[in-house]
Nucleic acid binder design. Structure first.
Lengths: 173, 173
DNA sequence: GATCGTACTGGACGATCGTCCAAACCCGGC
DNA sequence: GCCGGGTTTGGACGATCGTCCAGTACGATC
């Protein structure tokens, strides 16, 4: 892995661990195992590293989802697979932190909105094929609900997939 | 309003505006219109101000909710009123920031978990009275979904109550 | 082997951070 | 008028922040 990629990976870890506002140039370089000056050699600023790392993680986490939806037998197992995939992809807090940071950074906002729109569109098509009413609105609310579950689960581990999926599946009927 | 209360109000504003990690002693004092030293006269630390302010805002926002639920005619209008109440109470970002900070601060985590448990219990009773299946699980997922909607709405203003409520109401059937 | 360009290091710079504290302020009781 | 205690001020302290840059390391090219 190149130094540049190590910096991006370290940034994703640290955003989830410490919060967007607590990732500094030096802890970032230390986590990546490089000198502190190298951050500004590969990137314009520390903020730029955070933006690229979080958007990259978001894209990657959602890239496999269309295939994941198609391969699911029923809506419940699709929801379950969706939550499992987000679980695995670098900690729940990363995505929540990215969304919050996007409300305060126009460049990040545009990138996140783009990824989110794409995901909602794919989800809406899938919902429409299965006869769910108002697929576009349902997709938007479902995406929001999944993020909310990620946020609450960070506080309450009892909010497991087994609890969430049967309830959330009701919006698919 | 006392200086202490002005500091708490300023903290709630600034957490929502700039994010938990970007509220410093000096900007806090400036927003409250006082000297920078007064923060450590009334509070043990800057973090303590943020914790007290955010928990206070959370308690206040949820204190009126049992009455709000009882006065609602049907589940949809109850959901609508719930979202409207959270909208009004100091900006969507404050609660999300508080939840995220709670994952990294044990004292805050305990306080937030307490308020949340209380709210979910009241919501579960209300759901049970209306014959909703698995009321405790439904209440937990509904609370998470509402927070997720707050988060997504900060990015996408089109996610209005008119869009969200009909979809989310399906979990109540 | 000398040269060169890319990759990287570690320290310097001024700004800002949280915290602390001596001094000033305000105001009711003598 | 004076005094005493709660309240507030503004600056000092050392640590850390983001950014920048002179200097080093090293493989490719001649």
């Amino acid at each position: 892995m190149t130094v540049r990629d190590r910096l991006l990976a370290a940034a994703a870890e640290l955003i989830a661990e410490k919060g967007w506002g607590a990732v500094s140039t030096r802890v970032l370089a230390e986590r990546a195992g490089v000198g502190s000056g190298v951050v500004h050699y590969h990137f314009d600023s520390t903020q730029a590293v955070l933006v690229q790392a979080s958007v990259g993680a978001l894209r990657e986490a959602l890239s496999g989802l269309p295939a994941l939806l198609e391969s699911a037998a029923d809506p419940e197992s699709a929801l379950d697979a969706l939550l499992a995939a987000l679980d695995e992809a670098g900690g729940q807090e990363l995505f929540i932190e990215t969304f919050l940071a996007a409300t305060r950074n126009d460049e990040l906002r545009a990138a996140v909105a783009g990824v989110l729109t794409e995901f909602r569109a794919a989800l809406a098509v899938w919902l429409a094929e299965r006869g769910v009413p108002t697929p576009a609105e349902t997709a938007a609310v479902l995406a929001a609900a999944v993020d909310g579950v990620l946020l609450h689960r960070a506080l309450d581990p009892e909010l497991s997939r087994a609890v969430v999926v049967p309830v959330l599946a009701r919006v698919l009927r």
